[in-house]
Amino acid sequence: MIPENLLLDYSATLENKGASEIIISEKSRADFYFQIKTGEIKMFNLNEQGKEFVQGIFYDGESFGEPPLFGDFKYPASAVAVKPTQLFKLSKTNLFKLLTNNPEINLKFTKALAKRLYYKATILKEISVHPPEHRILALIDFLKRKDGSDKLFQVELTCQQIADLTGQRVETVIRAIKQLEIDGEIKLINRKVFR
């Protein structure tokens, strides 16, 4: 999102995180901007029964956990490295200086946050109103638009990740994917989902 050289110019540090290492704890104070160089980060909440609800999965070049920096509230979710990850960590103060001094980056940053808000609003509607098949297609279509590809799109998520992102059980996702294949909405090739 923000060019790496610019992050370093504003005193960002590059940190290595191991798989399953917590980056952000829910309800902790937001003092840093995080951007992934390589790896994968999952933001999630746990309910009282210990069931995980995934707020988002982030990959190379993406940032995560920014809204509390601007809203001056605590993190509403936790973030964990899914696999070994390198990420940039920049203080909130230096992030604001960077954005103030680089209006073109500020605009790109704002657009990226707006897309993320759109995704959240879309998924929330899907979870509250629609059947499992519709929820899954909405998620896949969002990912395909994000990828920007017109050709057959391969979904890189596991059934567990799809379940976590759509608020469903894995068994429900598996049944829904089979139904979507029967209906011709998706293709299954070597156990991978395509649309």
Rank of each mutant, 00 (worst) to 15 (best):
Y119K: 12
K144D: 12
L46W: 01
F44T: 09
S78N: 03
I162A: 09
N45L: 15
F73T: 15
S11Y: 13
P67Y: 10
N190A: 11
S20E: 12
A163C: 09
A176H: 02
K17S: 10
V193W: 00
S25F: 09
N102D: 12
A77I: 01
E21A: 04
N106G: 07
V82S: 08
L7C: 05
V82W: 05
P131I: 03
F73Y: 14
E4R: 02
C159A: 14
N190W: 04
Q49H: 14
K74V: 14
K120H: 15
S63E: 06
F194S: 11
G50N: 09
P3M: 07
D31C: 08
A12S: 10
V170H: 11
D183V: 02
K125V: 06
K42F: 03
D141R: 15
F88N: 02
S11V: 07
Y59E: 08
S20W: 07
L165G: 06
P131Y: 02
Q154E: 10
G56T: 04
V155Q: 01
S63P: 00
K178A: 13
N94I: 00
K187F: 12
L8N: 13
N5M: 06
T38H: 12
L157M: 14
N47Y: 05
R145I: 01
P131K: 07
L69Q: 05
A79C: 05
L143W: 03
Q179K: 14
V173I: 10
L6G: 07
L6H: 09
S91D: 08
H134D: 11
F32T: 13
L139C: 05
L8Q: 15
S28R: 06
K120E: 12
R116H: 02
Y119S: 02
L87E: 00
F109Y: 15
Y33V: 13
E66L: 01
F32V: 14
L113R: 12
D183R: 13
I57D: 02
L14W: 10
E52W: 03
L95T: 06
A79K: 01
L152M: 02
N45R: 15
A163N: 08
L98D: 08
E156S: 14
Q160V: 15
F194K: 13
T13P: 00
F194V: 13
F70T: 04
D9S: 15
E66M: 03
R195C: 09
L87K: 00
Y33G: 07
L46F: 06
Y10I: 02
Q86F: 09
L14F: 07
I2W: 08
L95P: 03
L46M: 04
D150F: 04
K108E: 13
F109D: 03
A114I: 06
M43N: 06
E181C: 01
K92V: 06
F88K: 03
Q154H: 02
R169F: 12
C159F: 11
P3G: 07
L152K: 04
Y10T: 01
D164K: 11
G50H: 05
G18E: 14
K89V: 15
R195W: 08
H134P: 00
S91C: 04
Q160P: 04
A12T: 04
T85Q: 03
K111L: 15
N101G: 08
D60G: 03
G61E: 12
A12L: 05
S63K: 03
R135M: 04
R145F: 07
F64N: 05
R135F: 02
A121N: 13
Q86R: 10
K192I: 00
H130S: 13
F58D: 01
